[in-house]
Each structure stands twice: as structure tokens, then as C-alpha cells.
């Protein structure tokens, strides 16, 4: 498989990269390439120019603030996150999700920003950013802007990053002391894209009941979605019954589509079961074992 011919540039600064995008309509950004290269090989895209972001130091920089907030540069490789005990401890939900992304060799190349911008509906990072209420920083010729994860994923493989813009970083707010998490997904084989998955962050009150929950379901719609009703129903509750009811509510509100990987009916079943499992982990009523 060979892509159509393209020109290649690897600028050393963000400014140069933005200038290249402005000067070459149709140019595509190359991050880790683990989704883009197959797309090019299959000739689903034939950009005239690839702008490789690998030489821009600030895009690979991560900052862990004193309060625990974590900013990950868009070019942070999955595996760099996975091998850093400090950032894993700062963001336990992401730490639980990353080992589910493909395989080691893919995680060595693939980047967090690439995953967010590719916006595959079955990808892990988009759901994690949604559950964690993370915010994306986007640079353009007019400066930078910040977009919350809830507004970032606008459709199937679509994001808020506009023409000529570059996602530079994602910022996770500090992880509260009483936040618990759960992560569960079902894939045909480990490392395949999930048929359905759930990333949940649950804040407990001082008595151990749910104060606030964010339940991101992925693989069940064009983009990851928050199961709002299920999260609402959890407030003030604890235990397995609460997790079960949330699973039922999530299933009732999310209408997956059938494709050649799984039927809509099967995906609906997975939504219910995986919401229950992820919340079971978060609420301590099930072993914290990946599904």
C-alpha cells in the first residue's frame, strides 16, 4: 500500500507550522501517524503536504502543577504517559485507560493530541477527557483559545479544531481527593478499538455518597457522550443498586448504531453492562479489574 505523493515539512516552531498550514490549503498535520498513515495508504485522504509536528519541543512538553493539574503537550506519546508514574498517579482514570490503546508499538508512536484530533468514536482519550472535564488549547493565526472537552468532539471524526489551527495541549484539572474512577471496555481482542467503553469519574461527599459523577460512554455514538441522566441518578447514593440503575438509564438514553463490528442491540447491552461495571469499580462494589 502506498499513499499518493505528498510534500513533507518538519518545522521547528509552532509559528512555522501555523504559517505552513495557512500557505498550503489541504495540508494535514502529522503527529504519531498511527491513524493517519493507514488513512493515507488506503488513499482515503491525499493531502498535498504533511506538516510533521515532531520537532516542535513545546508540543511534547508536559507540566504537572503543584495542585495536581496536568497539562499534556499534544505530541505526548501514549507510552510516555504510561511509563511516567507521577502523571499516572495524578490522573488515575487516564492511567486505567491508556493500556487499552492498541499495542505497545502503536503507543510508542501514537500521541494524545493525535488521538483527540482524529476523534475516532471508539477511542479512549476522548472519553477520558470528557469524564475528567479536561480542556484543549488550540493555536491559530489569531492566537490561542481553550475549548472544553464537552464542546470539542463535534461529530464523527470531527472536532472543534478549525482549518489552519493546531491542538497544542490538553489540561486535566487537579484530581480531587474524594474522586474515584472506573474504566471498562469490550473489544474483540485486547488492543482492538472498543465496541463500547465507559470512563467514569465519581466524586464522593464526606459520607461516601456520590456528590457528582461524569460517565463518558464511547463507541456508542458518533462521538463520546456523557450519560447525564445516569450521573444525576447517582447523586446522594452509593452501592451496587445505584450502579445498576445508572446502567439502565444510560442504556435508555443512548441509541447506538449497528455496523459490521456489532449490532445496535449488542452495543446497547454493552452500554448498560459497562456503565454498571465502571461505576462498580468507582463505588468500590466490584473488583477494579478491566473488562
Amino acid at each position: 500500500m502506498r499513499p499518493a505523493a505528498f510534500d513533507y515539512r518538519a518545522p521547528a516552531t509552532l509559528g512555522e507550522a501555523l504559517a505552513l498550514l495557512a500557505a498550503h490549503p489541504g495540508a494535514k498535520l502529522l503527529a504519531g501517524g498511527q491513524s493517519l498513515v493507514p488513512v493515507l495508504n488506503l488513499r482515503l485522504a491525499a493531502p498535498p503536504l504533511l506538516v510533521d509536528l515532531r520537532r516542535i519541543p513545546e508540543l511534547a512538553r508536559s507540566v504537572l502543577e503543584h495542585d495536581g493539574a496536568l497539562t499534556l503537550g499534544a505530541m505526548t506519546r501514549h507510552r510516555v504517559f504510561e511509563r511516567d508514574a507521577r502523571v499516572r498517579a495524578a490522573q488515575p482514570l487516564a492511567a486505567a485507560a491508556v493500556p487499552h490503546i492498541a499495542h505497545v508499538a502503536i503507543r510508542n508512536r501514537g500521541t494524545i493530541g493525535g488521538s483527540l484530533c482524529h476523534a475516532d468514536p471508539a477511542a479512549e482519550w476522548p472519553a477520558v477527557t470528557l469524564a475528567c472535564d479536561a480542556a484543549m488549547t488550540i493555536a491559530g493565526s489569531a492566537g490561542t483559545r481553550t475549548v472544553d472537552a464537552a464542546d470539542f468532539f463535534t461529530g464523527l471524526f470531527e472536532t472543534a479544531v478549525g482549518t489552519g489551527e493546531i491542538l497544542t495541549a490538553v489540561r486535566f484539572p487537579a484530581w480531587p481527593a474524594r474522586r474515584r474512577h472506573g474504566f471498562a471496555e469490550v473489544a474483540r481482542r485486547h488492543g482492538d478499538f472498543a465496541l463500547v467503553g465507559v470512563a467514569a469519574a465519581v466524586d464522593l461527599d464526606e459520607r461516601g455518597a456520590v456528590a457528582l459523577a461524569r460517565i463518558a460512554v464511547f463507541g456508542a455514538a458518533d462521538a463520546p457522550v456523557l450519560a447525564q441522566e445516569a450521573a444525576q441518578a447517582l447523586v446522594g447514593r452509593r452501592g451496587e443498586g445505584a450502579a445498576r440503575e445508572a446502567g439502565r438509564l444510560a442504556r435508555a438514553r443512548i441509541a447506538p448504531r449497528s455496523d459490521h463490528h456489532a449490532s445496535a442491540e449488542y452495543r446497547s447491552e454493552l452500554v448498560e453492562v459497562l456503565v454498571r461495571r465502571a461505576l462498580g469499580q468507582a463505588l468500590g462494589v466490584a473488583p477494579a479489574k478491566a473488562a
Binding site: M1, Y8, V37, P38, N41, L42, V104, I106, N108, R109
Partner: peptide
Amino acid sequence: CEHGACGACTVLVDGAAVRSCLVFAVQAD
């Protein structure tokens, strides 16, 4: 497979295992 699924083409780039079918030679510069 030439699309990153099979792993037969795995090589080390700067010590890390990668799929050489999913990396352009220019990226190894």
C-alpha cells in the same frame, strides 16, 4: 498487513519498538 495490525515489520526507532509500515522514512531522520 501494511496497516499496523500484524507487527511483522516491528523495528526499534530510538530504542522504542514501532511499526515500520506506519512510519515514513523521513520521520526517522
